[in-house]
Amino acid sequence: MLGRGHFFKWYMGIFLVFLYAPAILLPVFAFNDSSVVSFPLKGFTTKWFAVLQTTDSLHVAVRNSLMIAVTTAIFSTLFGVLAARASTRFSFPGRRSIMGFIMLPMVLPEIIIGVSLLVVIIQMGFELSLWSIILGHILICTPFCIAILSSAFMNLDQSLEEASFDLGQTRWNTFWLVILPLVMPGIVASLLIAFTISLDEFIIAFFLAGTEPTLPVYIWGQLRFPQKLPSLMALGTILLVLSISLLLIADYFRRRGVRKTGIENSGGFL
């Protein structure tokens, strides 16, 4: 009996160190006053963050990535809303296999998606552009959006819709007055998750990037130059803080949604 609690305490301790090691080192090196990313630490500085402000090629990449991430978030959430609503509210022939197919990009290796989109775009005679990356990102983000939105739609009591209809409202108004406000937290969470995934996605973006880089493609290019590394650490720190804030906001909205619909919080993101 004595062994068990202690086993888990030790195990979880070591596991968390393993899990958090990179995330903790990132800000450590970002504020380290040395042009070499290694121990021992040399002192505190914020100069690497200042370097970021003057790097124009970075700004281009950030702008590209933001454009891609915003567009991806909107479209994959839109596709997610349609699919989640269809699969939770209606039963239609082939529902399971259709949903399985739409969710497939979740388990497919990203290289396969990257390769196949590359082939199609080139065969069709299109130029690689930011739009090709957007298409790829919508494809991989939609399953995540569906997963989040399905739980939002599933928590929606079907009799609420029927009640609205029964009280004389049209289907269209029922959607705007009852369904949309109640799944709104799920939609916000879905937008944020898709945004975050797209912002960080590299494998597909690398395959489909034309002349214009996204942020991860830019980072990949810079990793070859040792003198750029400290400022990359600073960039990574900013991205980490941004991602976590977005996730916390997404989780806040999800919880609010759970509270609103009056259903027990069943924990767990994703």
């Binding site: 596709f79 039963s91 239609f92 497939l104 990009p105 390769v115 196949s116 494809l139």
Partner: peptide, 26 residues
């Protein structure tokens, strides 16, 4: 059935066009 299929059709069409067709092409 029809309403469900109608709702899911944009997402399905997108996935068919950008996943199934490319995979076949590969």
């Amino acid at each position: 059935g029809a309403q469900g299929l109608f709702l899911i059709s944009p997402t399905l069409a997108f996935t068919l066009l950008l996943l199934a067709v490319p995979l076949v092409l590969v």
